[in-house]
Amino acid sequence: MTHLDRDLPGGGAPAALTLSPDILGQFMPLFLWLDKRGRIRAMGPTLTKILGTEAIGTAYARHFVLRRARGHAPEGDPIGKARRIAVNLLRHPGFNLRGTAIEIVTGGGGGEDGTDTLVNLSFGIHLSEAVRFFGLTETDFAASDLAIEFLFMSEAKAAVLNELQALTRRLEDARRAAQNEALSDALTGLANRRAFDAALDRALKVLGRGGRRFALLHLDLDFFKQVNDTLGHAAGDAVLVQAAKVLSDETRRGDLVARVGGDEFMMILRGPINAERVEGFAKRLISRLEEPILHESELCRVSASIGAVIVGEKAGHDAVGLLAAADAALYASKHAGRGRCTVSEA
C-alpha cells in the first residue's frame, strides 16, 4: 500500500491517504513504483502489458534508460518537488516516455516507514505509434487522459485525409483516362485526329522558335476496301491493328503516329530529317505492310501509298498548307502506281 502524508491548510493535523497499486493503476495506467534501491515494486496495468509481470522486483535500470531529469526533492519534504523525467525503453528504444517522479512515504517492512519513488509516465508524441505497436486500446488509458481523445481525432483526420487523397487519385486517374480516350483511336490505340492536330501545332511552334525541321507523312492503305468487301469488317479491323503495330514499331519515341481516318494514318518524324532518310523509312513501312496478314484462316493483303513533306526552317509554315502538300504528295504516289512514297519539301 502507498501512504501519502500532507499537512492540512491552516496547520492542522496531517491527513493520510492510502492507495493500493490497483487503485493507482486506475488513475495512472502507466505508473511506476520504485523502492529506494531502484527496484520495481509495482506498475500500472498498461506498463505491465508492455514490460510483463516478470519485471516486478527487478531493477529499474534493466528496463529503462534515464535520458533527462529536472527538479529535485528538498530535504525534509516527504513528497518532494516533482521531477520531470524522460526515459527510453531498453527493449523498444524507438519509444521515448516522459513523466513526473515524486518521492512518497510508504509503510516499510517491520512497521518502519520508507521513502520510495512514484513515477507517472506517458508516451507523449509517440502515442499513436505505441498504440499500434503494443496493441493498446482505450481501456489502457485513464478515463481523464485527453491524449487518447486527441489520438482518435488525429486518426479520424488521417482517415479522412487518406480517403480524400484516394478520391483525388481516382479522379485524376479518371481524368487521365478520359483525356487519353479523347486523344486516342479506340481500335488501334494510336493518337486520333485531335491529338495529331495538336501535335502538329506544337511542332510548328517549336520550329518557329528555332527548332529542328521535321517530316510530315500521310499514309493510305492500298487495297483495304477489297479486304473489307470480300472478307468482312472484322478482317479489315485486323489489318488496321496490324498496320498500327508496324507503324509504331518503325517509329521512334519522339515521333507521332495517328490514325486520322478509316485507313489513313499521319506521322510526324522528328530528329535529323532529309529526303533520303524519309524515302528509306517509307520503303521499310511499305515492305512490312505488304506482308500477308492471317485472319481466321484467310490471308489479307494490302500495301500502302505515302506522301511526305519535309518541313524546313523557313518562316511562314501553317498546318493547313502542310496538310495540303502531304495530300498532294500522297495522290502523286497513288497515281504513280501505289505502293510507293513521294517526297516534297516545304
Rank of each mutant, 00 (worst) to 15 (best):
R259N: 11
H72E: 15
G236K: 08
H317N: 05
E103W: 05
G236V: 05
G25S: 14
T46K: 04
A166P: 01
A16Q: 13
A142T: 08
E163M: 10
A325R: 15
S248R: 15
E103P: 03
G76S: 13
H233K: 09
T230V: 07
V302E: 10
A143P: 02
S333I: 06
L322K: 08
M266I: 02
R202W: 09
L200W: 09
T18V: 15
H3W: 09
S333A: 15
G210L: 06
G312A: 14
H317S: 04
D35F: 08
E103K: 07
G211V: 11
L4H: 12
V131D: 10
T188N: 08
R270G: 13
T46H: 01
L89S: 06
G12C: 01
R270L: 11
S154F: 13
L97V: 08
S144P: 00
H72P: 01
A324D: 08
D263W: 06
E138P: 03
Q165C: 01
G339M: 06
F31I: 05
L187R: 11
T139N: 09
F152E: 10
E149R: 14
K245D: 10
F152H: 13
E250A: 14
A15G: 12
D327Q: 04
H317Q: 04
A282P: 06
N192M: 07
R277W: 09
H63R: 02
I79W: 02
L207G: 03
A282C: 13
I306R: 03
T100R: 12
L66P: 03
D116T: 05
L90P: 01
N88D: 14
N180Q: 14
L330V: 05
